[in-house]
Amino acid sequence: MLNRAILMGRLVADPELRQTPNGVSVTAFRIAVNRTYNRELTDWIDIVAWRQQAEFVSKYFQKGSMIVVEGSIQTRNYEDKNGNKRTAVEVVADQVHFAESKNAQRTNSQNFPLPTEMDEPAKGTGFSVGNMDDYEELDTDDGDLPF
């Protein structure tokens, strides 16, 4: 079985670092992620980061920052204030990465309006995976795989 999620989006609010009673760092935050097939729709994904990942997110990211989160989807059941049974779905972050330059992050965290469900996505919010000069062609004429 496989439970893996990789998401890229913008933080909806500043992350807040907390400590468990045992002194373990944790932060919970939400990111806005535009849907690939319908860029007019945005999903709001809850993320939880623990220990060094929590400290990293709290130190270097703020509202509006673009972030890449790698982790697994987790569900948990709880009872709300009115006694209703609820289920929370969140991504537990294994790794988090910057998704834009420092200058873009400073600019966007201050000026970037977060999308609403009907907003058009902001122009230029994608990322580049590099150019073809970064790749080396492998000789695989012998039929062997290169790894």
Rank of each mutant, 00 (worst) to 15 (best):
N77A: 11
P113C: 03
N38Y: 10
K63A: 09
F127T: 09
L2F: 12
V91C: 12
L145T: 09
N82V: 01
R39G: 10
K123F: 10
D139L: 03
F29I: 02
A104K: 15
N108I: 01
R18Y: 09
A88R: 12
E16M: 09
N3V: 07
R76C: 04
A122P: 00
V96P: 01
D144V: 07
T27Q: 02
V48R: 07
R76G: 09
E137Y: 10
T107G: 05
Q52R: 10
P121Y: 05
N84Y: 07
E79A: 02
E136R: 13
F147C: 06
A13M: 11
Q95N: 15
N84C: 00
L138M: 10
A54G: 05
P113S: 08
H97Q: 15
K63S: 12
N131T: 15
D139H: 07
A99F: 02
L7D: 06
D43I: 04
G71S: 07
A5W: 02
V89P: 05
D94W: 06
N34I: 03
N3R: 04
V92I: 14
F56K: 00
R106L: 14
P121D: 04
Q110G: 01
N131C: 13
D119F: 03
P15G: 05
I6H: 00
N131F: 10
A28R: 08
S109K: 03
S58K: 01
N108M: 09
Y60F: 14
S25R: 11
E70V: 09
S65V: 03
F112D: 05
T87V: 13
N131S: 14
K102M: 11
R51G: 00
L11Y: 02
N3L: 05
K59Q: 13
W44L: 11
G64V: 02
K102P: 03
D80H: 08
